[in-house]
Design a protein around this nucleic acid. Structure first.
Length: 293
DNA sequence: AACCAGGGGTACC
DNA sequence: GGTACCCATGGT
């Protein structure tokens, strides 16, 4: 019944910690459980790049091979990175098993609407609360699927506030209603060019440039989109001297950004020191900052 | 363009 | 066990 296969550039634990998805969870040992696409999956590492997936072969091929982006050639993507970009090379070595998932657009849109002014753990907490209250229960687990747009569209703001959404509740409601009435057709957007998709996502209230780019990268697999959050702002400022490197990275800019995001977040100033730059972490000082050029 | 929004996580004491 | 600051921001 379970599928076992050998995979390189694949580490569920690294993906779990990457901040692109909010429902992966460590279970026992080194196994990871994820709830996605209305299903539950447990991945158990068997050593030597071998993994066990607790699903049948047809499901693995039809659902999970795409979800985990297992058809993409990550060796080539790593190899295409500029060799003289010290920080990027270090970031790639830091998370060799990271992949950009192909997540459900609806769930991804919601997750990143909720992400604003929240840290990743807090996002996971409120997404889980939303699922537990309004998502379909999944057999064989206490966990629930992500709620459908129709279900959320039928709620009111107070129903959502109990999930810790705060001021984001009306944003999520707006998104649910747009999708439920067909004003926003998330499936159809797969075939649209980047700029069209981008503009369409920006129409949703609570979705700005950053969130739109996250949805484009993590759901629509637009690998050139590089979301700029506070961590990447620090990378640009402190590692690249205030000049964004992303336009220069070409078609994999968003992919590379994700590796850098993780390194910067995990190691902060230590990463900068290894990048060989004499920089200081700007502890939010008041006016008269000493780093003024 | 500065300022605000709820509230959980967390580093530091 | 306080508590001050931070957080994959966008709207006003």
């Amino acid at each position: 019944m379970p599928v076992t296969c050998e995979l390189t550039h694949f580490d569920p634990m690294q993906i779990m910690h990457s901040g692109q998805c909010f429902r992966m969870k460590k279970v026992d040992n080194d196994a990871v459980e994820t709830i996605a696409l209305g299903r539950r999956l447990v991945i158990t590492p068997l050593g030597e790049n071998r993994f066990s997936f607790d699903c049948d072969e047809p499901t693995f091929e039809a659902v999970w091979r795409d979800y985990f982006d297992l058809r993409e050639d990550y060796r080539a993507i790593h190899a295409a990175a500029p060799a003289d970009d010290v920080f990027l090379q270090r970031a790639l070595r830091y998370s060799p098993g990271l992949r950009i998932l192909r997540q459900d657009p609806w769930e991804t849109l919601c997750g990143f609407i909720l992400s604003q002014r929240k840290n990743i753990k807090a996002i996971c907490t409120c997404v889980e609360a939303l699922c537990n209250l309004y998502g379909e229960p999944l057999p064989g687990t206490e966990r629930h699927a992500f709620p459908t747009p129709e279900r959320l569209a039928a709620l009111d703001e107070t129903d959502m506030h109990v999930c810790g959404l705060g001021y984001r509740a009306p944003y999520l409601l707006d998104a649910a209603r747009r999708v439920a009435v067909g004003k926003l057709n998330l499936k159809a957007l797969f075939q649209m060019p980047d700029e069209w998709l981008f503009e369409e996502l920006l129409q949703v209230s609570g979705v700005g440039v950053k969130v739109a780019n996250c949805v484009m990268l993590f759901a629509y697999h637009r690998l050139s989109r590089a979301p700029v959050d506070v961590w990447i702002e620090r990378v640009i400022r402190e590692v690249y001297g205030g000049v964004t490197p992303y336009p220069g990275y070409g078609p994999y800019a968003g992919m590379y950004q994700q590796f850098q995001f993780i390194l910067q977040r995990d190691e902060g100033t230590a990463a900068l020191a290894s990048a060989g730059r004499a920089v200081q972490k700007p502890r939010k000082l008041a006016a008269g900052c000493a780093c003024e050029p």
